[in-house]
Amino acid sequence: RLIESLSQMLSMGFSDEGGWLTRLLQTKNYDIGAALDTIQ
């Protein structure tokens, strides 16, 4: 599930440099909407 969510976020133009996006998705239970809300 992480790989699916991460690949979708990467395709939106986000980077996972340093693993920050992986950690964010894990804390949000791989919910892309919740991750995007946090980023904004």
Rank of each mutant, 00 (worst) to 15 (best):
D16K: 01
A34G: 07
L6P: 00
F14G: 03
D31I: 07
G19L: 06
I32F: 07
S5L: 13
L2F: 08
G33M: 14
M12R: 06
E17Q: 09
R1M: 12
L6V: 06
I3L: 14
N29I: 08
M9A: 06
Q8H: 11
W20G: 02
S11M: 13
T27C: 14
S15K: 09
E4H: 11
R23K: 13
I39V: 06
G19F: 07
L21Q: 00
L10V: 12
I39H: 02
Y30N: 09
S15A: 08
G18L: 08
I3N: 13
S5V: 14
T27N: 13
L21D: 01
I32P: 05
K28Q: 11
I3K: 14
F14A: 02
N29D: 13
D37T: 11
I39R: 01
L6D: 00
G33N: 13
A34Q: 12
E4M: 09
S15E: 10
S7Q: 14
Q26W: 05
Q8G: 07
G19C: 12
Q26H: 12
W20T: 02
M12V: 05
E4Y: 07
E4N: 10
T38Q: 14
T22S: 11
T38W: 15
G13C: 13
A34Y: 05
K28F: 14
R23W: 05
D37N: 11
L2K: 06
S11K: 13
S7H: 14
K28V: 15
D31S: 05
I32Q: 04
R23P: 01
L25G: 02
D16P: 04
R1G: 12
R23H: 11
E17V: 11
T27E: 15
F14D: 03
L21E: 01
E4F: 03
L24Y: 01
R23G: 07
S11V: 12
W20L: 04
Q40K: 15
T38Y: 15
T22N: 04
F14W: 10
M9F: 07
L10A: 11
A35R: 00
R1Q: 10
L24K: 00
L36V: 08
T22L: 03
A35I: 11
I39F: 04
D37V: 13
W20A: 05
S5W: 10
G33R: 09
L36T: 03
I32N: 04
I3H: 13
A35G: 03
M9E: 03
G13D: 02
G13H: 05
N29M: 09
S15N: 14
L24N: 01
M9N: 02
W20I: 04
W20M: 04
D37E: 15
S5I: 14
D16H: 04
Q40L: 15
D31T: 04
G19V: 00
A34V: 08
A34L: 13
F14E: 06
Y30D: 05
G18P: 02
L36K: 02
Y30W: 10
L25H: 00
L2D: 07
K28S: 13
E17I: 12
T27A: 15
D31E: 08
M12F: 08
S11E: 15
L10H: 09
Q26S: 07
E4T: 10
R1D: 11
M12T: 06
S5P: 06
D31K: 00
L10I: 15
N29W: 09
T27Y: 11
S7R: 15
N29A: 10
G13W: 07
W20S: 03
R1V: 09
R23C: 13
L6K: 01
I3M: 13
S7F: 11
T22H: 03
R1T: 13
F14P: 02
A35N: 01
T27L: 15
I32E: 05
I32K: 04
T38H: 14
L21W: 01
G33I: 14
G18Q: 08
S5E: 05
I32G: 03
A34R: 06
M12S: 04
L24W: 05
K28N: 14
L2T: 03
W20E: 05
K28W: 10
M12N: 06
A34N: 09
T38D: 12
T38E: 15
G18K: 06
G19T: 02
D31G: 01
T38P: 02
S7Y: 11
G18S: 09
Q26A: 10
D31R: 00
S15I: 09
G33F: 12
T22M: 04
T38G: 07
S15P: 03
D31H: 05
N29L: 08
Q26I: 15
R1E: 12
L36G: 03
A35Q: 03
E4D: 13
E17S: 09
R1L: 13
R1P: 10
S15W: 06
M9C: 11
G13M: 07
D31W: 08
L25T: 02
M12H: 08
A34C: 10
N29V: 04
A34P: 02
K28G: 08
N29S: 07
S15V: 11
G19E: 07
W20P: 00
Q26K: 12
G18Y: 08
L6Q: 01
D37P: 02
L2I: 07
S15H: 13
S15Q: 11
I32Y: 04
S5G: 08
E4A: 12
S11L: 12
L25M: 02
T27W: 12
Q8I: 15
N29H: 10
T22G: 04
L25N: 01
I3G: 12
T38S: 14
S5F: 13
T22P: 01
M9I: 06
S11A: 15
G13P: 01
A35L: 08
R1K: 14
L10R: 11
D37G: 08
K28R: 08
A35P: 04
Q8W: 05
T27F: 10
L24T: 01
A34K: 09
D37W: 04
I39M: 07
L25Q: 01
G33T: 13
G19N: 07
L10Y: 03
L10W: 00
I39K: 04
L10T: 09
I32R: 02
D37L: 11
Y30E: 04
F14Y: 14
Q40E: 11
A35K: 02
W20Q: 04
S5H: 04
S15F: 09
G19Y: 08
F14S: 01
G13A: 04
Y30V: 04
D16L: 00
G33Q: 15
L2E: 08
S7A: 15
A34H: 05
G33L: 15
L10S: 08
Y30P: 04
A34T: 07
L24I: 09
S7P: 01
D16I: 07
I3R: 14
A35M: 05
T38L: 12
L25R: 00
Q26R: 10
E17P: 06
I39Q: 03
R23Y: 05
T38R: 06
S7D: 11
L24V: 06
F14T: 02
Y30I: 06
M9K: 01
L21G: 00
M12L: 10
I3A: 14
M9W: 07
R23N: 12
F14M: 04
M9S: 01
M9Q: 01
N29T: 01
Q40A: 13
Q26D: 07
Q8R: 12
A35S: 07
Q40Y: 14
S11F: 06
W20K: 03
N29P: 02
G33Y: 13
Q8K: 15
L24D: 01
G13N: 02
S11H: 12
L25K: 00
F14I: 05
R23V: 09
G18W: 08
Q26E: 14
Q26M: 11
D31V: 07
D37M: 09
K28L: 15
S7G: 12
S7T: 14
I39L: 13
L2R: 05
K28T: 15
T38V: 14
E4L: 09
S7N: 15
A35F: 09
F14K: 00
Q26N: 08
A35D: 03
M12G: 05
I32D: 03
L24S: 01
S15R: 06
S7L: 15
G13K: 00
T27S: 15
N29K: 08
D31A: 02
E4W: 06
I32V: 14
G33K: 13
